[in-house]
Design a protein around this nucleic acid. Structure first.
Lengths: 171, 171
DNA sequence: GTGGCAAATTAGGTACACCAAACATTACAA
DNA sequence: TTGTAATGTTTGGTGTACCTAATTTGCCAC
């Protein structure tokens, strides 16, 4: 009974909706030209997508006019954007990827994530940030690990600094 | 210069290739019927996909015969399967989702993940497993947190157990 | 051998998602 | 007010991915 990503939007329409949401935040209204530019598609494709989104009642759309989100569209778009931001946060601040790469991956992966996975990830990231056993120095250590692997010599003083003795090897 | 997911396969063809790979492991060869069943598509769709994969040199395919992966196909399929397994591992063992839900999400998200993100995730999971500051009890604590939130009262004895004093709030 | 059945393929059709080019509209400038 | 450039839409066409229905093939029992 796991609920699929969103309503019944294709990945593409999700992208259009998200873009409209961002453009609205950026400049009150979304224009076809800007949507096309942001998504790197032709204006013709935008026209088609807008018609589809209007049919689903997610945008207010009169030909030759501006586009705004309906209330329902806004809710869905906000949820899509949230998925995007959380994934990007994970890639950028935990996996420590470059902002652009983090964003690209978030953009491609966000459509396949269901809401349960999202909430778990949110909790996980919260916990990583809040649990006193983990912390910024831990993230820094992860960064080191990425470059050089686990070095028991570096591990010892680290453990001493939090007052723990070396554990038995796990698994 | 971030390398996109795999060769130049669509998500769908990646799924077909992965399925063939798994069926080969399971029973030496893959049969159209079984591919169709596993992916829940018609045999007609399988025929089309097999033709496409054969065109790309990823499978050995004679009409009305069995399907096997070529060397190149095998390499790509193995990589796809690896992405899948790592994501599933993350969802199941770290985000502590049910196996089926973990697998479903992995299946949908694997296609959008580039190799850099994958390697970072691998390192991250390795580090979570190996770093002595984290551990099984930490994962159990995360599980508790998922159900009840961060409880400072529960935090204190936990910290004491690793000999650390409560930190100043972070962020 | 051959009849019949299961499996695979082809044929024909739908739905998306995109494009370029032709056409329509708007808005601003002269 | 009218002309033009910018913007938006429609048209016609491509490619992908799926389906059902009809056909073909392979194989096994007889």
């Amino acid at each position: 009974m796991s609920s699929k990503p969103a309503e019944d939007l294709s990945s593409n329409l999700e992208d259009y909706l998200e873009t409209i949401y961002l453009l609205e935040k950026l400049s009150r209204v979304a224009r076809a030209k800007d949507i096309a530019a942001r998504l790197a598609v032709s204006r013709a494709s935008v026209s088609g997508a807008l018609k589809a989104l209007a049919d689903k009642g997610l945008i207010n759309y009169e030909p030759y006019s501006y586009v705004t989100l309906t209330k329902q569209g806004q809710e869905i778009a906000k949820e899509i954007d949230r998925r995007h931001c959380i994934l990007r946060d994970f890639f950028q601040h935990f996996l420590q990827m470059e902002p652009q790469a983090a964003d690209d991956n978030a953009c491609r992966m966000e459509h396949g994530m269901d809401s349960q996975a999202l909430e778990r990830l949110v909790r996980f990231l919260e916990f990583l940030r809040e649990c006193p056993r983990v912390g910024e120095d831990w993230l820094a250590a992860f960064n080191q690990y990425c470059q050089g692997g686990m070095d028991p010599k570096r591990c010892k003083p680290c453990l001493k600094s939090i007052g723990q003795s070396p554990p038995a090897p796990r698994e």
